[in-house]
Simulated assay, not measured.
Amino acid sequence: MLERLPHPLLPNHITKEFNELAKNAKGRYIVIVSGIIHDITPFAKDHPGGLPLIKASHGKDCTTAFNGAVYQHSNAARNLLATMRIGVLGGSEDLFWKQQRIENKSVPIDNDADGNRIVRSGSQATTFNTVIGGTAGAA
C-alpha cells in the first residue's frame, strides 16, 4: 500500500477527528475523496446527482463512488472538488469503512438510500492523479 506524505498546507486528521468534524458540521457536507477531506457545501445544491445524494455521502469516504462506482467524474469535476479541500485523512478508504462498521452498527452502510447493495473493493488503493476514463461532459 502507498504511504501518503502529509500535505504541507492542509491539516492532517485521524478517522476519529474526521468523524467529529462531520458530526459537528451543522448545515455543511463533508466527504473524503482520495484521502482528502472536502467541504462540498458550496456545490451541494448544484450537484447533478441531487442534494439527497450529497446528504447521503456526508461523513463518508466517497472515493470509489467518485471514481466510477456511481459515476466516473470528469476532469472538470476533479478540479472543482480540489477547490473545496479542508484537510487530509490519515489512513485508507478500507480502514475508514471498517471503522464506520464498528461505530455505526445501526446505520446500514451496505446499501444505498434506495436499498441497492453497495459494492466496495477492499484491496483497492486510492492514489492521487489517477483518472480512469473521463469525459468532456458535465462536471
Rank of each mutant, 00 (worst) to 15 (best):
L2T: 05
L2C: 02
E3C: 15
E3Y: 07
E3W: 11
P8T: 14
L9K: 13
L9G: 06
L9N: 13
L10D: 15
L10V: 08
L10N: 13
P11D: 03
N12A: 04
I14D: 12
T15E: 14
E17G: 02
L21T: 05
G27W: 13
R28I: 01
I32W: 08
V33C: 05
I36A: 04
I36K: 14
P42G: 12
F43K: 15
K45P: 03
K45D: 05
K45A: 15
D46T: 10
P48N: 10
G49L: 06
L51M: 14
L51H: 12
P52A: 03
P52Y: 02
K55C: 05
A56K: 01
G59C: 09
D61G: 00
C62E: 12
C62T: 05
C62L: 10
T63S: 14
T63Y: 04
T63C: 00
T64F: 03
A65M: 07
F66L: 07
V70K: 04
Y71N: 02
Q72W: 02
Q72C: 04
H73M: 11
R78M: 01
L81T: 03
T83V: 13
M84P: 03
R85V: 05
L89H: 05
L89P: 00
G91A: 13
Q100R: 10
Q100Y: 06
R101C: 01
R101Y: 04
R101G: 01
E103H: 12
S106F: 13
V107T: 08
P108A: 05
I109D: 03
N111E: 05
I118C: 08
R120H: 02
R120T: 00
G122Q: 09
A125G: 02
T127A: 02
F128H: 04
T130A: 12
I132V: 14
G133M: 08
T135A: 13
A136W: 09
A136V: 02
A136M: 12
A138L: 14
A138E: 15
A139C: 10
A139F: 07
